[in-house]
Design a protein around this nucleic acid. Structure first.
Lengths: 191, 191
DNA sequence: TATTTTTGTTAGTAAACACTAACTAACCAA
DNA sequence: TTGGTTAGTTAGTGTTTACTAACAAAAATA
């Protein structure tokens, strides 16, 4: 488990990453954001890489927890919506973590970070793919395109939405336009 | 116009970016890749930022040229396919430019670079949006979802495809799986 | 109460960074 | 043949980077 301080540092790192990009995430800025010295950071993390890894791991666990908690008693379409509403709601409350969604740019020389990014994507896939497959079985979703391709369409649209939100400086209501996007997606993939 | 040497440097920069990420693009590596000294780079570009800008501008012009040259005599569906085949073909021949175009969110180094990235996206939009609108008018594409939302779906799927290709280490045939993706998209957005 | 652990401080480190100064050899036009 | 431009070299510059050593105060524990 991570401590309170570690969570604060992870938040600060996410904020800096989202605001200034990867080149902007330095130990100096991190210390400034935390309000204490650079050296103090190393009381809580062994390295800068460990901070990034902890951030990705935290986001994975957080998403897994949220999506696991969603009611399994609803129909396929309602569960589909619930997944994305949970995501849009989380990022509205934590815009500084948007960076994690298109964390492809974090890709560097560290294999560990690469694996953490893949684990994040796979966790989401693990919720979406069986749901789409169920929807195809019971006739809710189209079956003339494979479940994998449908997931690809949905995930791609979601990621692009998050990208646009960030580029706009979080200036529009993500919940509202996210709802519209989900409606459009459903219109297109439903039978 | 850019010189031969400038184009070589742009290619080298793209290669390093794709292999080592944004943090890996240093003047030292650039010089090593070019086979001459760091100082020589500054005979051809005033700064590292200028190299990145020139690369993005080159890619924008290249895409604009390719997509403008596509036959306007074809039907909406054929023109739609032609746009993406041109893109998949270009990146298959130039995989080292994938990162420059698709790991956008994490640059944030300068306003000029951000604007260049947005200009790239908008150039593509300028080809896709009127095409989709045409397709909706003549009944090829669905009209119960707005043209903007359809473009969003299509562009999101395309970008995610490019991301997966890079993450895989360019290990699958982009033209083949790209063709499949376009077929799936068409199945879903056609009337 | 005495001691150990925790969490912060200041003041550094070597390495890496983008970039520059001074110089040189090859080419090219007058 | 002279003189300027081009494109490369070596050897640096100051700055920033991630990270560390030595120390201090307070809190937890014995």
């Amino acid at each position: 488990m991570i401590s309170e301080r570690q969570k604060e540092i992870i938040d600060a790192a996410g904020k800096i990453l989202t605001e200034s990009g990867i080149g902007g995430l330095t130990t100096k800025k991190l210390a400034l954001e935390m309000g204490f010295s650079e050296a103090a950071i190393y009381r809580h993390f062994p390295s800068k890489e460990a901070i990034t890894l902890a951030m990705l791991e935290y986001l994975r666990e957080n998403m897994h927890g949220r999506l696991s908690a969603l009611s399994a008693n609803l129909g396929v379409e309602e569960r589909f919506k619930a997944i994305f509403f949970s995501q849009f709601s989380f990022f509205t409350r934590n815009p500084h973590f948007v960076v994690a969604v298109f964390s492809d740019g974090l890709w560097e020389e560290s294999d560990q970070i690469n694996q953490a990014i893949l684990a994040l994507m796979q966790t989401k896939m693990a919720f979406l793919l069986p749901l789409i497959t169920d929807g195809q079985s019971n006739g809710t979703f189209k079956s003339d395109v494979s479940a994998e391709q449908l997931v690809h369409l949905v995930l791609g649209a979601f990621r692009l939405q998050m990208f646009k939100w960030r580029v706009s400086g979080f200036s529009f209501d993500l919940n509202a336009s996210g709802t519209q996007l989900i409606e459009s997606i459903l219109t297109v993939i439903k039978n």
